[in-house]
Design a protein around this nucleic acid. Sequence first.
DNA 1: TTGTATGCGTTATCAC
DNA 2: GTGATAACGCATACAA
Lengths: 355, 355
Amino acid sequence: MANIRDVASRAGVSVATVSHVVNESRFVADETKARVLSAISELNYRRDGIARSLRRSHTGTIGAIISDVTNPFFSDLVKGIDNVVHNLPNRVNVMLCNTEEDPAKERAYLDVLMEKRVDGLIVAPAGDNRAYFQSLIEQSFPLVFVDRTLSGIDVESVEVDNLGASASVIRHLIDQGHRRIAVLKATLQANSIGNRLSGYEQEIAVAGLSTSLELVVECASDIVSAQVGGTKLLDLDPLPDAVFCTNNFMTLGMVRAINARGLRCPEDIAIAGFDDFLWADAFRPRITAVAQPSIEMGEEAARLLMSRIAKTRSGPPVHRLLDTSLIVRESSRPRQLSQSLASAPTGDRAPSERV
Amino acid sequence: MANIRDVASRAGVSVATVSHVVNESRFVADETKARVLSAISELNYRRDGIARSLRRSHTGTIGAIISDVTNPFFSDLVKGIDNVVHNLPNRVNVMLCNTEEDPAKERAYLDVLMEKRVDGLIVAPAGDNRAYFQSLIEQSFPLVFVDRTLSGIDVESVEVDNLGASASVIRHLIDQGHRRIAVLKATLQANSIGNRLSGYEQEIAVAGLSTSLELVVECASDIVSAQVGGTKLLDLDPLPDAVFCTNNFMTLGMVRAINARGLRCPEDIAIAGFDDFLWADAFRPRITAVAQPSIEMGEEAARLLMSRIAKTRSGPPVHRLLDTSLIVRESSRPRQLSQSLASAPTGDRAPSERV
DNA sequence: TTGTATGCGTTATCAC
DNA sequence: GTGATAACGCATACAA
């Protein structure tokens, strides 16, 4: 690989001149510039970003530490990050890391990324690495949390009002006449999930409904576990009227559990969940859900981070709370109504309403 | 940030010694090592990966250039790559790039990634950057294509037998009694899509069915466009018996088009597609589809790449063809049968069959 | 308008 | 067992 010196000697100029034409960082006479340019193309020279980063002490690379790209919520997040970061004049790249909610893995990623000298970090913290994050903040290293936060850590964040949003789903369920409302909850340290549960508890209390421990089933955040957890809910006697699923995988597992039992939704049991899906409008049952602006969350996180990196912004950390929308579809319908309608074909005549 | 020299002087040793204890690259007396280690922790020293990369001339970073993380097929691919790459003794990171099938974007990514000196590249080529890839190959830069290839470029690849797999779907559709079979095709340069269309054409010819231009609708590879394209197919008179969708987004759009018309699948029109979904078993209609081993494809591509990078393997490029499976579900059922069954509840009693 | 020379933080060669 | 020091390829302060 040709380096800047090779180019310089071939063009009969100094390395400084080559550097300046490559970076357009100072005036170079047309004739000189032409010689340099042709030397560059003859030698197939490409500037070495590593040497450049060493010299300039920033890399044009950021890290994104999330739980799992395979989860549509997180892939949207990543897409959002990429969207803004690659439209910058000096294109920034993102290193993607999947923690699978394991704090040890998260820690390991944090170590490599810092060693690789990323300019900043967007993370959906799995929990536990508080001390590490705290020390990053003290060095005022650019960091933004997304989807969740860690209590006691004051850092930039972009989230959603998890408590309020789930309270609104529960309210909706109650309005539809459901009384015995269960929840299928992912066992994650993340406060986002905790807040969703609190929203449920709050609204149940407000409505004066009795809650019971058996109505809250907790399980690992994957579809298979969710189906097992969902089945437990279906073993309850009497059957719950409705179940609130704390994230997309919980919903998927719950629907599978219902199908496996030969039950129907919402005729036998209603569902409402967190996270909307691409295909939610296309397939049956159409699920009532809180839609998070997942792509925008990624974009906003990236914007926040980039402005910190560029130092175009300073001051105390900002905390963004983006709006969700409750998308009401058939899965949360009153059971009686559903049953009486069950024989009628369900085309798309009943459009989803956004609340 | 403390550097190796700071550590050395604090520990009263040379930088060479510090380097060796950090990298465990030569014997250091216990007592000396202890002094170095404590200097390291006192100064909170972290090895600088950039300087290290410059010196050693590799970065421990690879690039993954795909079309869109938001597409479940590609997010699986990325997950697969991450799986193998992060379980290596010396953890490698991946820079993720979404081309959105735009060769110009792809080219731009290629440029930055090469400038950042990634050790290798896994790419699902959008098309057109042949010369660029060719020159990488000539420099024997580690490169593997995934999901698709480019004619005339002989490079390592991991794919699926697209032609054979789609031929088998079409055969299945014909076996089910469908005769007028349409296809909803993504307009992508990718040969994977081209081969899927060829599989269709081949089987239609083998079966002696007449094909007609109106039965092949082409549209951009996103859900909205797919719905528009699907609607065109529904405007045909007579209605096709079945439609073959060349990828997951086409399927989604087709189902939406059918719903929007108030039609039912498979009672009014059958569907079979490429790419299986996480939720395919949970929601209705359950789609008959070719399942690609998407995670494994990513894993295999990463293994291939890493062995090239580590030079534990040499010789001519290998081309892996991974197995697909046709998952038969209700969406492809014979229309008569479906109609007579339409009144009966469709629980999960009819398990999907793998063929 | 262009050139010279220093240093970014490492690793690795050679020397002792 | 350990140390000195020359690269790696570039950007930039300073000089001309």
